[in-house]
Amino acid sequence: MPLKITHLSAKEIYTFLIVCLFCVLTIAGVVLSSDLDVTRVGPQYLEGISNLNNISNSVYGIYGMYRFYDTLFELLVFSTAVLGITLFSDIQSAGGSKSGQLVESHIVDTSASYLYPIIALFGIYLAYSAHRGPGGGFAGGVIGGSGVLLLAIAIGADLIGERFYETTMKKVEYLILLIVMAIVIAGLFLPVAVYQGNGGLGVIVMVNLAIGTKVFIGTWTILHFFVKHRGEL
């Protein structure tokens, strides 16, 4: 005898089943992860880093020693996303004339123009000093980008460098990707000593600064697009 569920549509039954399935999976996940026994990072990792005696932030030690290619390809993913936005920004014309400030206030204006250099400096510091303290290329680039965000809010959408962006930034963006690639690929041919010991420090700082610039320009591109197309959803 067939089961009769008349007051529910097929779609609702499927939805209910999926929700049940995920509840079961979630509970199973909780139960399984409660006695999760993750072995901590192997001693060989930390030993490898401790050879680099100038690097005290072991997160970036792991980057410098083991994860250069990984970082490169993650950077490629980010660049692809930004490239997509750049292409659509060219195709899609902004609806209507959208210029002017987002916030009209002298206090915000003035404080933003004084704060921006400090924020940018802090971003550069974070990218530069990642081997010594928390920070790194990604964090530094993002903090620098948030300075641009402040400018976009305070001074206006047009003034966050429409012309400068269109002419210079687009080219520099991919140049920096090439620089990171060159540094990483050079590791195949250069002697290991350059990447370890005191030489390794220079490479890590260079890569971090390059990543920081790349992420900074990427976030700038994204902000530029969304300020230009604001209110379209």
């Binding site: 990642a130 790194g136 903090i143 902000l223 969304f226 604001r230 959803l233």
Partner: peptide, 27 residues
């Protein structure tokens, strides 16, 4: 994990919120 905290703070709090608010500013 201060490295992740700095990045997540800047991205998640400032950028993502700002981008959503910009895109949804007509809502």
């Amino acid at each position: 994990a201060p490295d992740v905290a700095v990045t997540e703070g800047a991205i998640g709090v400032a950028f993502v919120t700002f981008i959503y608010v910009l895109a949804l500013s007509d809502q």
